[in-house]
Amino acid sequence: MHIPENYLSPATCAVMAVVAVPALAVCAKKAKQELSNETVPLIGMCAAFSFLLMMFNLPLPGGTTGHAVGGALAAALVGPWAAALSVSAALVIQAVLFGDGGILPLGANIFNMAIILPFVSYFIAKAVKKVVKSQAGEFAGIAIGAYVGLNAAALATAIEFGIQPSIAADASGLPLYCPYPLSIAIPAMMMPHLLVAGFAEAAFSVGIYSFIKRVSPISIRQESKGGNKLVYAFISALILLVPLGLLAQGTAWGEWGAEEMAELVESGSPLGFTPWGMENGFSFSALLPDYTVPGIPEVVGYILSAICGVALSIIIFRLAAGLLKKKSIA
């Protein structure tokens, strides 16, 4: 569910970051209040925990494996505030240190997996627990919460992908980023999550939660008494308002491409920008005929090809040398 670079328009990324940052600030404030000064180590540890949760390969039907996200479980164990912060920290580390998920879409990834997932699952678990007061009710709440929460997060991801063709297209209406409209993005994203991943997430969450409940119930966060309504309302409003914000920026920012960027930077003196048509775009993938890149002034193309060629030959040479060395040792 990690959105990689270049699938969302920078405008979408900006909107999502603008949403995610204040939401996390609120979470930090609430977590500090709730956990007093123990917050920092707990969130750091829990970030590592949620990172590790994403590394457990779960057996799925058909002999494949997949991994859980763990946001629902974290919310049940340490509360939604600390969970949101922890999962965010894990996502930042994954993006920066492991190249898992893009850096620009980090805001979107945080919104989907670190805000929607923990909060949706937390509230569902809480509601179910209120209706069915037994331990079975508690576990069922966590299972349903994890299932719905994961699918809500997947839906948010699908929507972010799906609106790209309509908000970020060039003059001829061709998409600049993710080319799939909502009608494709939503089913493609939702089918595996509704049918498989949601259940795996639910099973894994309940499994760990019940294990901890059995072994060391005092380690699980105790529900604090009320007084949170306003903040909950803020978070829910955020979740509801984001789609509107995304669509609203569509018309205004959709065309905010390189050209406008150039104008902005050069303070109103537009430079000769040749927008690239589809034909030119495709010919790029051809194998650099005559050591020149089509469409580039020949000298520049030649230099670029040379740099690329030199770099590639160094890499190939060094990798080959490494292989040979290994063989001669063995």
Binding site: E5, Y7, L174, P175, Y177, P179, W276, M278
Partner: peptide, 12 residues
Amino acid sequence: KAGFASLIPVKA
């Protein structure tokens, strides 16, 4: 329907 999206793998 790719349009500029065909650049995405290269951009990626």
